[in-house]
Simulated scan of single mutants.
Amino acid sequence: MKDLLNTNISFAYNEALEMIISMGMIACKGQLLALAEDYKLELDPLALTFHNDAQARLSPHTLRELQFFFQYHFLHKGLDFAFYESICSLTKPQSAEEWINMLEQSPAEHVVVQMVYGVYWDQMEEFLQGQEWETVKIDLRLLTELVTDTTPQPELINAHAPLLECLAHPEETKLRYMQLIRLFYRDAFVLWKDRFREESEQASLIYKEYFHANPVRFIQEFNKVEPAVYDIPTTFHISFISQIGNHHISINTGTAWISWVIFGIHNNRVFGPAADREKTELFLKAFSDKRRLDFILLLQERPHYGQELAKKLGITPAAVNYHANFLFFLNLLEMKREDHRMYYHLNIDILRELLAVTTRVMLGEDY
């Protein structure tokens, strides 16, 4: 396994990816702050300064356009998936300017089709109505009919009308998103890009040391997935602006799979060792919501994949991700791939340890 990981995993800073992440962060600032409060995290002061500076520099029109393409849900890519797809379908990192020039050459119809996939990826069976995606995606008229007939997940319901608008006017949509991206680059990102690269590359040196010292442990403890997932070449982008988290983006180019991981610069603060009191506070916070207790009880029976949990819990797949993050932060979950699906596994030993820690803290007992 060590040899597999050393062969398939590399680290590289992708400026284009960092810019598109930063656009989403500005659009979803309210959601980001709410998540940070829920997880008892403080955002990096430099990241907050960027948020405030960008919002002050961007025009009201640019901010409205940013909302149109990026605002819908922090944990569920929507219209913005098209931009991630165009970046992550390449194995080599790009500068922001290189990517902007490349996107200009990409057909408007292709980008709009990827917006559809971004909104409906977790309900494709319902969306396609028995048809094949490869057939449907080349027919904008049919795509429009399917979008009209299919209500998105609740967290993306507000993306429905904008998506139909993009499908009806792909060339105008391209003019809009190209102008938005160029303005964001000129008025906000270009002023910060060198600092973001510096912060991310410094952190990357540390994470590469962790990885090379013990690849399996790094993937299990900091990336929170089963190491066997990395049976295809994958590049880790250490992201300053995303702060914390692991977001996997795998693209099938038709000839090969290409995979990128957006890895938060401060993952070691959350996924590394924590003080007992902090663990206890988060542990109690995690189970203040009945659905997270039900989540654990379901996994106690057997591992489940995301859509399966969503159906049993009566929530959306994005909500499953939201609740799972509490449990990931406590090391209670592991992700393992089985039968082409990613399954959540409960770490029983960690659960026992946290229950014991909570007992000691609550009763004031010594070790």
Rank of each mutant, 00 (worst) to 15 (best):
M25R: 14
K92F: 13
F11K: 03
C28T: 15
P93A: 06
I241V: 09
Q179S: 12
F70H: 02
Y207A: 05
N52K: 09
M124W: 06
A324D: 06
F11E: 05
Y344T: 03
I262M: 04
Y344A: 06
H345F: 15
E15I: 09
T235V: 03
N14A: 11
Y84Q: 00
V216P: 02
A324E: 06
R57N: 11
P45A: 10
I258D: 02
M19R: 04
L128R: 01
T280E: 05
P154Q: 05
L332I: 10
L156C: 05
D44R: 07
D276I: 05
D231G: 08
Y322N: 08
T234F: 02
L351Y: 08
Q129T: 11
R341D: 06
D38G: 12
A286I: 04
N158D: 11
T359E: 15
D366T: 13
Q307C: 15
A47I: 12
L297F: 12
N6C: 15
K137N: 05
I21F: 14
K208S: 09
M25T: 15
E201S: 08
R352L: 14
E209T: 15
L103D: 03
A34E: 14
G314M: 06
F283D: 00
N246K: 00
E165L: 11
D139K: 06
L355Y: 10
V112P: 00
R217Q: 11
T316F: 12
H51S: 09
S239Y: 04
Q67N: 10
E42L: 14
Q31P: 03
K193M: 07
K336C: 11
A356K: 07
L48A: 08
D149I: 13
N252T: 04
H212E: 12
G130R: 03
R360P: 00
F240S: 01
Y343D: 05
V116N: 01
L4V: 13
L330E: 06
S259T: 08
C28E: 15
P152R: 02
F271A: 03
I20L: 14
M1D: 14
D44N: 09
Y367G: 12
D276S: 08
A275P: 02
L163H: 02
L282E: 04
V229D: 15
T7R: 13
L103M: 05
Y344V: 09
T135N: 11
T135I: 14
F283C: 01
I258C: 03
V361K: 04
N52I: 13
I206Q: 07
H73Y: 09
R57P: 04
E198F: 14
N268R: 10
F222N: 07
Q202M: 12
T148P: 00
K312Q: 12
W133G: 00
H169W: 08
L167M: 01
F70N: 01
T359W: 14
I244P: 01
S10N: 12
A54E: 02
